[in-house]
Amino acid sequence: MRAIAFMALFAAGGAWALDAGAPLPALAAPSLDNPARQVSLASMRGDVVYVDFWASWCGPCRQSMPLLDGFQKRFGARGLRVIGVNKDVSAADAQRFLRSVPVGFTLVQDAGDALARAFDVKAMPSGYLADRHGVVRYVHRGFNAQSEAALEREITALLEEKP
C-alpha cells in the first residue's frame, strides 16, 4: 500500500508523447498577429505540415526560425505549410523577437497550452513533420547543426510522396 502510494507520486508526470505514426491533432488556434482569425490544423490535410513550438526565450529558436522561414519560401509552392506555435508568456515578447528574426510563415498563439498539451511537447523547440494524410512522420526535439539537413531531406521526401 505504502509502496503504491509512493510510486503514484512519480507516475503523475506521465510518459506519453506524440511520436511518428500518430495523427496530427485536429486542433485550431488563433493567429498570433490577428487573434480573431483561427488557424486549423485539420484544414491543412493534403499539405505537408511542419508544426514548430518556439518562444523568444528559447536559445536554439533563434537559429531554427530563419531556417524554417527559408524552407517555407523554397517549398511553399510545392505544398509545405510551416506553422509556428508561440509559447511566450506575453505577445509583446514574441513581437520583439520577430522584429529581430522576421519570418513569413503562419504563426499562432497557444495561451491555454491546448496545442502544447496535445503534442506533449518535451523540449523547446519541438517540431512535428506530418505528411499529406495528416500523419506525423518525423519529430525533432531541440535544434542543432544536423537538424537542418535532416529536416530538408525529410521535407523533400514527403513532398514527393503522392497523396
Partner: peptide, 28 residues
C-alpha cells in the same frame, strides 16, 4: 502510518512539474 502517507502526499501535491514549454517566466 496512514496519516503520514496522506500528509506526504499532500505536501508532494505542492510540487509541480514545469513543462518545457512553460518556462517563459523561469527564463527571465
Amino acid at each position: 502510518m496512514r496519516t503520514l502517507v496522506l500528509v506526504a502526499a499532500l505536501l508532494a501535491a505542492g510540487c509541480t512539474h514545469v513543462a518545457p514549454y512553460e518556462r517563459g517566466y523561469l527564463a527571465r
